[in-house]
Simulated assay, not measured.
Amino acid sequence: MSLYRARTTIEQWRIFQAVVHCNGYAQAAKELNKSQSSLNHAVAKLQAQLGVQLLEVKGRKAQLTAAGEVMLRRSQFLTQQIEDLEQLAHSLERGWEPTLTIAVEHFHPKDKIYQALKLFHPQSRGTRVTIIDTVISATAEAITDASADLVITPELPLGVLGTCLCHTRLVLVAHRQHPLARQSNISYDDLTQHLQLVVRDNGKHPDNRHGWLKAEQRWTLSNFNEAIELLLQGMGFAWLPEHQVKEHLSSGILINLKVQRGATRQFTSYLVAPKPQHQGPAGALLEQLIVDQYTSSAS
């Protein structure tokens, strides 16, 4: 079986992409620290080898042809694969990861994560683990920016795969002496007249489309513990994870508000490895241990 020998090189495709990205040969030459003539030669040779015109110069700008648009998309995928392959080799050369970061959506229960970490520790070879609480857009950013090695999220960005771990319920609660506690069939208009406690979206670009945020009075807090403390003082109402207020609901000091609809909200938590192709042995082990905790409890 004879192996296919490519007529083009990765460097030629990289130059082609740079010319497109920089809107011309002169700008691309500065970006790549090469002469403009060498870039012209590389792209001309690439087109000749392919037998397809990729660019046409109009004025001082190089514009893509219809064929060039198709080839650009495919070549970007190719160069990204090469980059990923080289980074994978670097990861294998480094071996066991010295650090791991886990980003967890703030309302997800962490008990099984802690159980997985307990099992991971004897095998960790000194790997330092950081757990960060993320809220709404920060969780998505941890995936898209690959700023964490493992992410537990209620939403999967387009094109991202994740392992389903569990379902979490958020309940609408207030103190038993709060005015809303004495009402039944509470409407959304009723809620808008009272103080709402919300947890701050800690992403770089907060997304206010999530959650119910129509109350005229709203206090923004750093975490659910702060919200619970204020609720126990008889202040406001809030959406809270059911597992975090279970004891307070059982004792009766906090109650579920009787709203017309939507008294509970359920989310599915997924475990995501943002860059699976770059994952090292420590990350793979911890990911499997976390999945095992949820799998064993479900069986």
Rank of each mutant, 00 (worst) to 15 (best):
F120H: 04
I290R: 06
E229W: 00
S124F: 00
P179G: 11
S184L: 07
Y25I: 15
I186R: 09
L100N: 04
Q47S: 15
I253T: 09
S91Y: 00
L85D: 07
W212Q: 10
I290Q: 07
N256T: 12
E83F: 03
Q63L: 12
A26I: 05
T139S: 15
P109K: 12
L119A: 15
R209A: 05
Q266F: 04
L50D: 06
L240M: 15
T168F: 03
V70D: 07
T101D: 01
Q277R: 09
S296T: 12
L165T: 14
Q115A: 13
V151I: 06
Q293Y: 01
S124A: 15
K34I: 03
L230F: 08
K61Q: 14
S2L: 11
L39I: 15
P274C: 04
E242Q: 15
P109G: 12
L64R: 07
S297I: 06
T153E: 02
R176W: 02
A18P: 10
R261N: 10
V52D: 05
R5L: 06
H243F: 11
A67F: 04
F107C: 10
L85S: 14
R176V: 12
V171T: 15
N23P: 00
T9F: 11
L257Q: 10
Q81S: 10
L254I: 08
Q277T: 03
R125L: 14
G51V: 07
T127M: 05
